Amino acid sequence: MVFTRRTRVLIGALGVACLVLLGPSVPSGSLFGGGSLSVEKPVDVVPNRVMTWNICNPCEESNANRAAEIAAAAPQVVGLQEACVRDVERIRDHLRHRYGLDYRVEYGTVLRNWGRCGGLPWSPGAYGQAVLSAAPMTDAVDVEYPDGGSEDRGYMAVTTTVGGRSVRVFNTHLAERRQEEVRAEQAGVLAAEVERHERAIVLGDFNAVPDTPELARMWTLAADADPDCRPSPTGDCEVTTDWQSKFDYIFLRDVAALGHRVHPTPYSDHHPLRADLDLG
């Protein structure tokens, strides 16, 4: 069949219109953004490494850049705060397609908010925490604190494998700054659940520096992955935020830390914190 030039132009225009209407069928940035569906840099997960990161929302950062930060550490488990479900889905896709890192995801959503996570006004995106794990997760729970302060807050927990051992992993985000009494109540709710487990890893943004009273109960149950960080003015705690404060923690209960690192990033006002652990 022979098409005239005018017909060919019309067919091409229709094709472009279909692409615009339907959009790409692959993760954002992985095809039309110049990437590839094939693995660009295969990365191996570090089986005894965990990471916590408040990815900042709303910050309009690229999920490809967020995935690159996670891939650079390649943790067995990563806890994210201020996470929209749609963003986490895209981050997971980038990790799989670009780096060969295949993570399972559990969500601890506490809020459905169009302003935070987009979507349609009658179907807004879900917002809260998420845990990505290279190993299967079981017994997932999602708990909203009785009082969230100025915004709903909560914690989530899963059982998964780190360093070849089964462990309970918590991920939380406490109330915003200048809400000390609310944070103290939230930390009490969290600590009561952590105390039920002989071995636990607690990840999160606690919005409080180490020597604040609201964190006192957590310090009685667990140690920070940073051995020099203690709940006293003499503690030498590495800062985790742009405003030079330590708000992000990896609390360890019956788990030893082999090393830790804070990695400064331009993609959030919090920096990724990771730790290599010994669960033996």
Rank of each mutant, 00 (worst) to 15 (best):
P146I: 06
G29F: 12
W219T: 09
S166T: 11
R66S: 00
E185C: 10
R261W: 09
G125S: 07
Y99G: 00
T240G: 12
G34K: 15
G108V: 06
K41L: 15
P264S: 01
L277I: 03
P264I: 07
R49G: 01
H197I: 13
V85H: 09
D152H: 15
N63I: 04
C84A: 09
L279P: 03
R90M: 14
Q76L: 03
E185Q: 14
E69G: 08
R8K: 08
R168S: 01
E40R: 15
L21R: 14
H173C: 13
D205P: 02
G100P: 03
D269S: 11
A192P: 10
P233I: 05
L10F: 03
R5T: 06
L111H: 02
L111C: 02
G119E: 00
T109C: 04
F32Q: 12
Q129C: 09
M1F: 10
A175P: 14
R178C: 14
R168Y: 05
L277K: 02
T212F: 12
P47F: 05
D211S: 15
P146L: 04
R6Q: 05
N63V: 07
C237E: 02
I250W: 04
A216D: 05
R274D: 04
V77C: 07
D44W: 08
G79R: 09
E151C: 11
V45R: 06
G235Q: 10
P124D: 03
G204P: 02
E151L: 15
G118W: 08
V43F: 12
E61G: 11
G29R: 15
A200H: 01
V202P: 01
N63E: 03
